[in-house]
Design a protein around this nucleic acid. Sequence first.
RNA 1: GGCGCGUUCGUCUAGUGGCUUAGGACGCCGCCCUCUCAAGGCGGAGAUCACGGGUUCGACUCCCGUACGCGCUACCA
Length: 485
Amino acid sequence: MINNIPRVRFAPSPTGYLHVGGLRTALYNYLFARNSGGKFILRIEDTDRNRYIPGAIENLISTLKWAEIDYDEGPDIGGENGPYLQSERLDIYKEHADILIKNKKAYYCFCSAERLASLREEQQKQNIQTKYDKHCLNLSDETISQNLSKGLPHVVRLNVEPGKIIKFRDHIREEVEFSSEVVDDQVLIKSDKYPTYHLANVVDDHLMKITHVIRGEEWLSSTPKHIILYEAFGWEIPVFAHLPLLLNADRSKLSKRQGDVAVEDYRNKGYLKEALINFVALLGWTAGDDKEYYDIDELISKFSLDRVNKSGAVFNIEKLNWLNEEHLRRKSDAELLQMLRTELSESKYSTLTYTDEYLISVIRVMKERVSFIKEILEKGYYFFEEPSSYEEAVVKKRWNNQSAEILKLYGENIRAINSPTKEDYENILKNTAAQFNTGNGDVIHPLRLAVSGIGGGPGIFDILYIIGREKTLNRINTIIEKLNK
RNA sequence: GGCGCGUUCGUCUAGUGGCUUAGGACGCCGCCCUCUCAAGGCGGAGAUCACGGGUUCGACUCCCGUACGCGCUACCA
């Protein structure tokens, strides 16, 4: 084992979208692999035909691609240990189940759903643990082959030996111990011939040479079953690492009711993959220093399973928002330009054309003021259209009976200059204020209102310079008309 | 009900027996900067380290118990 490189996997079920918890599990596996020079495998656990949703696999893959969590082997790219879709490995599971049956580690069970239900009901009534009563364990070979040849529906169950202690070391939780008395004779092969998670997972992890099983805490309780399977096959047991759960604000398991859980929801809202990854990485892991902002390369170099927490973490959107701002501000103008163009093409401004130069100047003055690129179109709408109204409170506070005259004069003064620079706008403004014997603010605020319609935003001279002389003059005329009715 | 796991500021966390009057980050509040809004800088409030025992000269840190939370308890994963 020492010479083997680490091999880890992310093994989601195609039941819809990629959950943010799944993203974190995938990320930790990915970080671990990249950090240790190991391999990361994507395997699709589509053994439940009832829950299968068409398109879910494609969706999972495209979401992982968006997040740039790339894998070395997987259903769409192949690899030496495929196929990577469990539904294409049915023969393998049958073959392994047969080995178990031959060695008395598993057995056929012909019990009906009704019997199972009443058994469970009875156990619940008696307040004892619900588990299978090994009713079919000692069926004679004759009975079994008769039943089989009659085509009776059946499953294959794990034969759990009672009275044993199953002990294993979880990388995150240290020693964990279960009595085999509490381990059910789990169904391994369902009556539809598909394997259950437990069999498929163990067989595949072994065949795919997985060295570290990094998965959510919800699997901790079924790990004894997996240990029993590894031992029944005589296989080496991988290292287990059960990750703490992601929680809602009320500390219940993160669910759809209380907010968005699909990665694509966050993507659609405009969150950057860098921010989501940074955020989710910090939910349950810390490098131990005071750093909060990480790019993927730093995450890879610093990640260690040793520093993963034990307790669940509340998914707190405030911090995600902050990280989104941080990542946004460190993006290059070129990247932001591309993102802004995408937003524009999907907005009501899609028919308008703007030069790269124009948009970059808008980006430069707006990026410190937004959390999302799309907010540039909202908070900085006046770079794309004229204000159609003026914010009431600002009018009240900043517009007085002198304002129209001041603006008029300012307009005349800038009209005299052909293509004013930012400094020209500023110098003229100071002159205008002096002419009126008033403070700069008495010019600035009405002017800001005229060109933007609102009270806040980038420096006024930046705005004027970006929108240009003609638009500035038009907007001055408009506000004078509208407010001095 | 049974079994398992967990429990440090509102939230994410640092802390591995004395360095701790428990540190950082987000959020919140204030000040500075300033034409506004942000950003940035500075500062503040915020945690009897779930509770109770024990071990120890000394415990947030080790042990036991209790409480609470969560997970599992399917021919779902």
